[in-house]
């Protein structure tokens, strides 16, 4: 039974290799996208926190995205 699934009547190499390549490539792209997102989040939060209180207040008031981002980012840490 298990032997059968692995060998696939001689086609095992091609079947397993194509599934493996697909999932490895998908995993690699996921990892890369995730890393980049985290890096940008970190940099953005750092930059927001470096602003003076006055500027920060202004930015957060004007930009919903920035305030929403900061709220969700602070929650996640």
């Amino acid at each position: 039974m298990i032997q059968n699934i692995i060998s696939m009547n001689g086609y095992g190499f091609f079947v397993w290799l194509s599934f493996a390549i697909t999932f490895l490539a998908c995993g690699a792209l996921y990892y890369k996208t995730y890393k980049t997102l985290k890096k940008y989040e970190k940099d953005f939060a750092k930059e927001l926190n470096q602003l003076s209180e006055e500027e920060k207040k202004q930015v957060l008031e004007k930009s919903k995205v920035a305030s929403e981002f900061l709220a969700s980012y602070n929650k996640s840490i």
Binding site: L37, L48, V65
Partner: peptide, 25 residues
């Protein structure tokens, strides 16, 4: 899987744009 990647990448792009314009938001 595509939806996951798309959402994460889109979020990255938004942050990148906002970060670039941080003084002008």
């Amino acid at each position: 899987y595509c939806a996951l990647i798309l959402l994460m990448k889109y979020k990255t792009e938004i942050i990148r744009i906002k970060k670039k314009n941080i003084k002008r938001i």
